[in-house]
Computed example of a mutant assay.
Amino acid sequence: MASQKQEQRLSFLATAIPPVAWIVVFFLAPLAIVWAYSFGENAGLTEVDISGTFANYERALQPLYLGIFTKSVVIAALTTLLCLVVGFPVALAIVFASEKWRAWLLLLIMLPFWTNLLIRTYALMAVLRTEGYVNFTLGWLWDNASWFMTLVGLEPLGDFTPLQLLYTNFAVIVGLVYVHLPFMVLPLYAALDRLDKSLIEASLDLGAGHLRTLYSIVMPLALPGIISGIIITFVPALGAYLTPDLLGGPDSQMIANVIERQFKVANDWPFGAALSFLLMYATFAAIALRAYFSRGKTADGHGF
């Protein structure tokens, strides 16, 4: 018996050691080095003296960087809200679609993951630029409206002025929603797919309308998927770098762009490390807060 337990223990260790070693060597160790850099100062062009100082964190809490961090949180929160508003009906439609179409609809949701983010971002730039498809469509509608007004004897419209959509906060939010929408749809679909559809039928049979059924039955039962989708969308949106860098202007930069400049341009690795870990601390705090309240609700018998 003891020999069998020892064999099981050895088998478990043989299976667990390679992935644990991989995580330690290629994830935890580099993370620990960057964390140690956040308590250091530059000692030369390529050297960092880890002196235990908190000056980098004090500098990161200055109004300039707090403002950028706050703006990043607001943009990430707005992106998450828009993804929820758009993604919930999409997930609901996929759940109630026929078996034949459900697989194809899920494929369309996951299809963007098969394309490089850089290519998708450049494609969006082609859509939003001054000579892009959005302005081309608006210009065509404007010209036709002007022609129709002339036809009926009204004063025609003037020349169409293309909208400045690219390199704005609007473009950044559109890009973030475009990139992160699948992260919201898939958890919502997983939660709604487990929904007991007889509850919806009972609600409708008892006289509740579709909107009341949605808010009183569907959304409370889908709450685990909603919370998971919010976290999965908000966290990467908060740390997004490529989208605001390519689609945003000078006033549209987020905290990840500031961190990148500290490492690549300013060569201030200690300050960049401090900014990075402040972002990680905030992310971990949000996840821990969600886990705490979820555990409390479950313990009281009111959770999911």
Rank of each mutant, 00 (worst) to 15 (best):
K297M: 14
G158P: 13
D245T: 05
A77V: 14
D159G: 07
W114C: 09
L221P: 00
M125E: 03
N257I: 00
V218E: 06
A145I: 04
A171L: 01
F263D: 15
P18Q: 01
L211E: 01
F54H: 03
V24Q: 05
R290N: 12
I23N: 07
A43D: 02
F54G: 09
Q253W: 04
R212T: 13
M125C: 08
A288P: 13
E41T: 13
L45K: 02
I119K: 12
L176V: 05
L141Y: 01
A97W: 06
Y178D: 11
S203D: 08
K100Y: 08
F27L: 07
T121C: 15
L107E: 02
Q262Y: 11
Y122I: 08
A36D: 06
D196C: 10
N169P: 02
G207D: 12
I230P: 00
A29I: 11
A60Y: 00
T283V: 12
I259R: 02
N144Y: 13
K71Q: 15
L214C: 10
T80K: 05
A32T: 06
L92E: 08
F136I: 13
D245A: 14
A21M: 03
V90W: 15
L45H: 04
L128N: 11
G248V: 01
W101A: 10
L111W: 07
A91V: 10
L64V: 11
P18D: 06
V235H: 03
A299Y: 02
Y122F: 14
T233Q: 07
T80H: 03
P270T: 01
I75P: 00
L204N: 07
A21E: 04
M280A: 15
V174F: 09
F26K: 00
A60K: 00
A256P: 10
G301Q: 04
R102G: 09
A32I: 02
S51E: 08
V48T: 02
N169G: 02
M1F: 13
A55C: 03
L141R: 06
V34P: 01
E58S: 11
L92W: 12
F88M: 13
P162C: 01
N56R: 09
I259K: 08
R9L: 13
I94A: 00
W35P: 01
V265C: 00
F69E: 02
A123S: 15
R261Y: 03
T79K: 01
L13D: 05
T161S: 12
M1G: 09
L211I: 08
M149G: 06
L13Y: 10
D193L: 12
D193Y: 11
A126H: 05
L118G: 07
T298W: 09
F27Y: 07
T130A: 14
I23P: 06
G249T: 06
P236Y: 04
D159Q: 06
K197G: 06
A273K: 05
G296H: 15
P18L: 04
V258C: 13
V25R: 01
A208F: 09
D300W: 05
G139L: 07
R290I: 15
F263E: 15
L165G: 01
L278K: 10
I232M: 10
L278E: 13
L117M: 08
D205T: 10
A171K: 03
M254N: 05
E41L: 08
G153S: 05
L199I: 04
G209R: 08
H180F: 14
S216M: 10
F293C: 04
V85C: 14
E99D: 14
F293Q: 02
